[in-house]
């Protein structure tokens, strides 16, 4: 990557405008973790298979480990760090705690970002729609049920 010609990127990250010099082959995951120290986004498979690195680009979940950083010029990025309002968790984050949906925790930032996108696009999804939305997010502790329960609670479809 040392031979990469740097290129300037301006985008918003969690509501703040950022102008950065990134490498031509740099991934958005590298930019977030190494340049902006937003280490909540996790590095899993590095192949776009596991979903641990999911962030939202213009509201859509994307695997940041295979997303070109130079390609996000002008776009709106949201990461796990942007979900809570200071100490106050988002309703979805709170529901994850209430349902004990977190085991080892590694997949959780990606899960939360995908589900945040789903609830923004569809205020009241069915269980099946929640499960389909999570198809690209892998949890090796296999605690999917509690996560789906949490999403249903956050959507107001089921009580905690």
């Amino acid at each position: 990557m040392t031979a990469d010609q740097p290129i300037s990127v301006t985008c918003t990250v969690n509501g703040e405008t950022q102008t950065l010099e990134v490498g031509a082959g740099e991934t958005l995951l590298q930019t977030l973790r190494r340049r902006l120290w937003l280490t909540g986004t996790k590095e899993g498979c590095l192949e776009g298979e596991c979903g641990a690195c999911t962030v939202l680009i213009d509201g859509a979940p994307v695997a940041s480990c295979i997303q070109s950083a130079a390609a996000v010029d002008g776009r709106d990025i949201r990461t796990i760090e942007g979900l809570s309002d200071g100490e106050r968790l988002s309703p979805l984050q709170q529901a994850f705690l209430d349902h004990a949906a977190v085991q080892c925790g590694f997949c959780i930032p990606g899960m939360l970002m995908t589900l945040t996108a789903l609830l923004e696009q569809q205020a009241s999804p069915s269980r099946e729609e929640v499960e389909t939305a999570l198809a690209g997010n892998t949890c090796r502790c296999t605690g999917y049920q509690q996560m789906v329960d949490a999403a249903m609670t956050a959507a107001g479809r089921e009580r905690a």
Partner: peptide, 21 residues
Amino acid sequence: GGTDLMAQYGRGEIAPGALIH
């Protein structure tokens, strides 16, 4: 979108001189 290309680049399977976005 780069879902194939960036994965191939990350694995070192391709080494292009330029990416044209």
